[in-house]
């Protein structure tokens, strides 16, 4: 299980054709996330929470500074290597679902990580039960409700056993039952030495989970234990 460190990371979005001004999101951001803990990142709308998630999964590259997984600089790692350490549930889960059938969705990563098809299908079926998704096993993934999509996306990522689980605003569209289901899984991952980063605009979540709170204000970051 490896720590993720941001070392004086700077990032800005370039201006677009309609919106000329470039937008500085982070400057000199330094932060280390230690495995075995739950972090909750909160902050006002538009402060850069999703940008942080994209940096941490290698979807965006920092303009300056570096991001390390363990000892390795992420710049030199491919997405498929980064994915071994960080599993992401996107803010809009429908975008990350790629297969038609929920079982295939969960098996996708297992097969690409070298598991035999039959075995992957068995693991996937068990995961469907585990995440209370058996009822929708025959529904095409794109027709699931948003809450079901979150659970499916989470199951597909969690079966790969990454060191880190990153949930980008995933809890806000879950009802009570599926929410506690997801939080159970997070707790289990942490017991096994992994880490979780939950992004949420709600400040209360950190207290509820007894998690370490990371507060992003525009341009600056503070960590509250």
């Amino acid at each position: 299980m490896r720590a993720v460190s941001f070392e004086s990371v700077g990032f800005s979005y370039p201006g677009s054709r309609q919106d000329k001004s470039s937008k500085q999101v982070f400057e000199g951001l330094t932060l280390t996330l230690v495995p075995g803990k739950v972090y909750v990142m909160s902050g006002p709308n538009g402060c850069g929470k999703s940008t942080f998630a994209k940096l941490m999964t290698g979807m965006l590259k920092p303009d300056s500074g570096r991001i390390l997984i363990g000892e390795n600089d992420m710049v030199w790692m491919g997405l498929s290597d980064i994915g071994k350490h960080v599993g992401l549930v996107m803010q809009n889960p429908s975008r990350q679902l790629i297969m038609q059938k929920p079982v295939d969705e969960i098996a996708f990563g297992l097969i690409h990580r070298g598991m035999q098809k039959d075995e992957a299908a068995n693991v996937a079926k068990a995961a469907l039960r585990d995440y209370k998704l058996t009822e929708i096993a025959d529904t095409p993934t794109q027709k699931l409700s948003k809450g079901e999509q979150v659970r499916l996306a989470m199951a597909s990522v969690a079966v790969l056993e990454p060191d880190w689980l990153l949930l980008d605003e995933s809890l806000s569209c879950l009802d009570g039952a599926s929410r506690s289901k997801v939080l159970d899984k997070v707790a289990r991952l942490v017991r096994h030495g992994g880490g979780a980063l939950i992004i949420s605009h709600s400040k209360d979540l950190a207290y509820e989970l007894g998690a370490i709170r990371i507060l992003i204000e525009r341009g600056g970051v503070s960590v509250v234990v």
Binding site: T57, M59, G78, L79, S80, I82, G83, K84, V86, G87, L88, M90, N92, R95, Q96, L97, I98, F108, G109, H112, R113, S156, V157, L160
Partner: peptide, 19 residues
């Protein structure tokens, strides 16, 4: 194009080494 990009990213993160 947006949908495809996100889907492929998520495929790569789950071990599909497209390159």
């Amino acid at each position: 194009a947006e949908e495809m990009t996100d889907s492929l990213t998520s495929a790569e993160l789950r071990g599909a080494d497209i390159k």
